[in-house]
Structure formats: structure tokens, C-alpha cells
Simulated scan of single mutants.
Amino acid sequence: MLNMLLSQVLDLMTPVLLAAMAGTLCERAGVFNIALEGKMLVGAFAAVAASVAFGSPMVAVLFAVVCTAIFAFPLALGGARFGGDPIVIGIGLNLLAAGLTTYLLSALFGVTGTLVDPAVIALPRFGIGALAGLPVLGAIADGHNLLVYLSWLLVLVLNVYLFRTRWGLRLRGIGEVPSAAAAMGANVNRYQTAIVLLAGALCGLAGAQLALGSVALFAENMTAGRGWIAVVAVMLGRAHPLGIALACFGFGLADAIGLRLQGQGLPNQITDIAPYAITLLAMIGLGLRGAMRKIRNT
């Protein structure tokens, strides 16, 4: 039972984890990205639309990546290149994504609410021989789709990139002291623009996992706050990939437990709030920690 629960946690946390990795890159580059929610929603819609059109989940994932990278252009150009307020631009992108996907759902498919089509193919699950033979870990980590494994590989890659390479050191320098980085010859605007576009692509993966991972459908506003949870995960993990992965695991665990309790007859209105309640408590904890730090420093 515990193995099944933890296996479900890995599926549920993957969209948040991928979006949080996108937020981590932006945070390290000095661009506060709160448009993760809208980009995930665009990625989910693009993945389902491409799955209907081409009948291939892999093509659907690639299409979602391209579409969300394009959708990230306003933040990349306005926030990173031309010095606009990234918070204002991010809120605008979130509102645009909600309205645009609702409109396209009706205009392209003639439905409202939820698109369920036999042509939408979920991402295939597969086993990894090296994992399947492990006593406990095999039952938890084996039998997921490619994006689940990719998300954990991405955590390790970003951890090495940010803290073990000179390119990661340069990126962190741009985020912390951009004037000093520019004086050392780094093109701050170019770095930030590229990172925001890359973050958009990662949100495309998050949206594809959300729409084609455990389910094979698109529903209006189906992200349901997961992008905001990803923003909180970045804050909780202090923009460190390993800390963020731990925070996302906690959110996924809360979501999985909520679904289990719903299956036991608890009203879904109660179980659905579990991840958001934890998010709220985490934000309160962050505020209290900051207040205590200020008190100690005075």
C-alpha cells in the first residue's frame, strides 16, 4: 500500500517539480517568474491539441515545449530585456493563458469545460530493468512515463550546473549582482532572456505531464494552482534544486493522500484543499522564519 502511494506521489509531483525547476532557473537569473501557472496551462492545452492532430504523445510533448517557449516571449523580452516589471507581466500572462485556452477549446474543438477525445493518447509508461529488480525502490520508481524520470534527472543536472560549473556560477552572479557580472563581460540581458525562454520550455513539459501523464484530457484551468505551488516550492527550497524537490515531494504526498481519502468517501471539496493548505502553512512558516531572523539581527 505504501509503495503504491509513493509511486502515485511521483506522478502527482512531476508537473510541479518541472515548473519549479523553471522557476529556479529564473530566480537564479534574477527574474521573478510568477507566470508558471499560465505557461503550464498553455503547455497542457498544446499537448492535447497536438495529440489530437498528430496522434503521437512524443510529438505532443515537443509541441507543448515549443508553444510555451513562444508564450514566454513577453516575459523574456519585456521583463528580461527591456526592464519591465516581471510580476505585472507574469500576472498578465496567467490571465491571458486562462482566457486563450478557454477560447481555443471552443473555437478549435467546439466544446467547453473538458475535452475528452479518443485521439488523445497518454504518455506511455515503461519499466527500467535496473530499477525493477530493487526490493523496495523498484515498486516505487518503476513503471512511470519518461517525463517523471526526466524531472528527477533534471534536478541532478541543475544541481551540478548551478553549483559545480563556471556557467552556473556566472548565472548566479547575474542574478545576485548583475552590475558586477556585466562588468566582468557577461551579457546580462542575453542570459536572462535565454533562461526565461528555457523556463517556458520546461513549463511545457510540466503541462504535457499534467494533461497526458495520469490522464489524457484537457479541462479549463486544469492547472488548478499548481503553478503557484511551484512558485512557493522555489521559495521554500531557496532556489536550490534538491530543496525544491523535497518541497515538491511534500506537496505531491499531500495530493496523493487527499485522493486516497476521497476514495474512502471523504468529500472531494475537503481533500482537494490539502496541497493548498500545506502551501498556506508553508508561506506562514516562511514569514515567521523571516520575522525571527530580523529579530535576531536587531
Rank of each mutant, 00 (worst) to 15 (best):
L171C: 05
C248M: 02
L131Y: 10
A69Y: 00
A277K: 13
A182M: 04
L95H: 12
I121L: 15
G200R: 00
M13P: 06
V52Q: 13
T68A: 13
I128R: 14
G252K: 01
T24D: 06
G83F: 04
G23R: 07
L108T: 05
A72I: 00
G227Y: 06
G92I: 02
A132F: 04
P178W: 03
T271M: 10
G225R: 10
L137W: 04
A139D: 15
M40V: 02
A206Q: 01
P15M: 02
N221S: 12
S56E: 00
L162A: 01
V116Y: 15
A277V: 14
S179A: 14
T114W: 01
G285L: 10
G55H: 11
L5S: 08
I295R: 14
Y103C: 04
F249K: 08
M4Y: 13
L202T: 00
G243P: 11
I89N: 12
G110H: 05
F82E: 05
V66F: 09
T165G: 10
G290A: 12
L286P: 04
F63L: 13
A206T: 00
A49K: 05
I140P: 08
F71H: 09
N297M: 15
E176A: 09
L25T: 00
P57A: 01
A46T: 01
L95G: 11
T101W: 08
G265F: 00
K39T: 10
A186E: 09
I229V: 11
G250M: 08
R125W: 09
G99F: 02
D11W: 13
L108S: 15
E37A: 03
L242G: 14
A186D: 08
L131Q: 11
L77A: 15
M13Q: 04
F54S: 14
M184V: 07
I273Y: 03
L281S: 13
L146A: 14
P178D: 03
F73S: 13
G200K: 01
P267Y: 04
L253Q: 09
L261G: 09
V120N: 02
L197R: 06
T68Q: 08
L104P: 10
R166K: 13
A44R: 00
M184C: 15
V48N: 02
C26L: 10
H144Q: 10
I284F: 09
A211I: 00
Q264W: 12
F71D: 03
A201I: 03
A277R: 12
L36Q: 06
R293M: 06
A80Q: 02
L134Q: 04
A181M: 01
M40F: 03
G258I: 07
R172V: 00
D85H: 14
G250V: 02
L2T: 11
S106A: 12
L281Q: 07
A180K: 06
L246V: 14
V111Q: 11
L156G: 08
W228S: 04
L104C: 02
V234P: 07
F32D: 04
V188R: 08
W152I: 15
I195R: 04
A216K: 04
F251K: 10
F163V: 00
L236S: 06
G225M: 03
R238F: 07
L266R: 06
V66C: 08
R293V: 03
A224W: 10
G92W: 13
L100R: 07
V48S: 03
A72W: 01
